[in-house]
Structures are given as C-alpha cells and as structure tokens.
C-alpha cells in the first residue's frame, strides 16, 4: 500500500476539489451566520440575564444553563427530526443555523456577562452621577471597556462555532465534511477527507493564533 496513493492521492484530490470548495463555502456561510446571530442573541440574553425583572432573569439563566448542557448534535437532531412533528420543518441549513445560534448565544451571553461584571462599580456610579441613562451608561461607558475583555473569549467561541458546523453533515447539509465523505465514497479513497481536514485547519489555525495574540495583548493591561 502506497501512503500517498491512499491518503494524498493527487488525482483524487483534484477531482474532489470543486466539491470540497463548494462545501467549504457553505461551511463558512453557516459559520459566519451562526457567529453573528449568536453574538446578537448573546448580547440580548446577557442584558436580560442581568437587568430584567426577576422572572425574565431566571428564564435567561435557565436558557443559558440548558443550552450549555445539551450536546449540540442532540439539539440539531431534535430541531431537524423532531420539530416536524410539531409542524415546524426547517431545512438542513436552517436547522444547523438555529442549533449553532442557540448554543453560541448561551456561551456568548456568559462571556458578555463576565466582561460587563469585570467593569468596576465606580464606572457605573460615575456615569449615573453624571445623569447618563442606563442605556447610555452601557453603550458609552461599559460596553466599550468590556469589548476589550470579551474579544479573546469571543474569538475562541467563534472557532468552536466553525468547527461545530461539521455536525450539520449529519442532517444532510452538503458542507465541507459531507462533500468530503461523499467524494470518499465515490472514489473509494480517503484523500478527500484528508483534504477537508487540511481546509479546516487552514482556516482555523490563523484564528487560533489570533486568540493567543489577543490574549497576550489584552492581558498585558495596556489600553488599546
């Protein structure tokens, strides 16, 4: 058995490349959409979790805890296969987007909360004493400072979201992994899988390096 013929067969890779790139494009679309939606959900949930009336606060806390407990794959399968029994039939892309957003939103909410709670009480007091409204205090004083704290963990979470998009292949979404497994079946050769792995790494390694860089930079305690 020749290693290269089996795992890095150039002819197979070349034949698979168009499909792999199609899959990559879908993976990136799903990842980007889930990251953005997760940020919006997370910020709203964090605000409600901290400042809403008690019943809403409790509901948000349950949302956060439940979605951090449920395996993403289970959530995805429930959305895709179980919701149709309630008359809600989502496409594989929409199901994956919903699952990734719900989970990412829960993690993001906790990241935002930690960032906001790291802002000293005196900042809130100074803003209130000047007559700034609670909303203004958030947007003009607290969040600009919290952003510096939350960017490294948010980037980290984004990496996880992109990695987790691979689960969408389970509900037949033709993402990078799904395309690779299909080409593997078609060509009876695992090279497309290796090609997919290399593409994931090529996209995510720079982000991993970025997180390390941001953590070093933000932890050095300097103003940005």
């Amino acid at each position: 058995m020749d290693f290269f013929d089996t795992f890095l067969n150039l002819a197979v890779l070349q034949r698979s490349l168009p499909m792999l790139l199609q899959g990559l494009w879908l993976t990136l679309q799903l990842g980007a959409a889930s990251i953005v939606a997760g940020l919006i959900v997370g910020l709203i949930v964090a605000m409600l979790r901290m400042y809403a009336v008690a019943p809403v606060r409790i509901a948000m806390r349950m949302y956060i805890d439940v979605l951090r407990s449920i395996p993403l794959l289970v959530l995805l399968i429930v959305i895709y296969y179980a919701l149709p029994f309630l008359g809600l039939r989502l496409s594989s892309f929409a199901s994956a987007l919903a699952a990734l957003t719900l989970v990412s939103g829960a993690y993001t909410a906790e990241i935002f909360r930690a960032g906001i709670e790291a802002i000293p009480k005196g900042q809130f007091e100074a803003a209130s004493a000047l007559g700034l409204s609670p909303q203004r205090t958030m947007t003009d004083v607290v969040l600009p400072q919290a952003v510096r704290i939350v960017i490294p963990p948010l980037t980290n979470n984004s990496i996880n979201v992109v990695k987790d998009t691979a689960l969408a292949s389970v509900v037949a979404m033709p993402d990078l992994l799904k395309q690779a497994t299909q080409m593997q079946a078609l060509t009876a050769n695992p090279s497309p899988l290796i090609g997919a792995a290399i593409l994931y790494i090529a996209f995510l390694w720079p982000l991993v390096l970025l997180v390390s860089y941001l953590e070093r930079r933000f932890n050095s305690g300097r103003r940005v």
Partner: peptide
C-alpha cells in the same frame, strides 16, 4: 442627577476616553 455633580475618592474617570472626551461625554449625551 444632571444638576448634582459628584467627585469620588477613586476618581472614576472613563479609561477608554481621552481627558477631553471624559469632560464632553455628559453634556453631549445628557
């Protein structure tokens, strides 16, 4: 609150704003 100013023991300036912007913030936003 718009009429009562407060000065704290720990200053509590806004670290992400320049000195001038610290002074400008409340007049602009309130």
């Amino acid at each position: 609150r718009a009429e009562v100013g407060m000065v704290f023991q720990g200053f509590n300036l806004f670290p992400h704003l320049s000195v001038r912007e610290n002074v400008m913030l409340a007049p602009r936003r309130v």
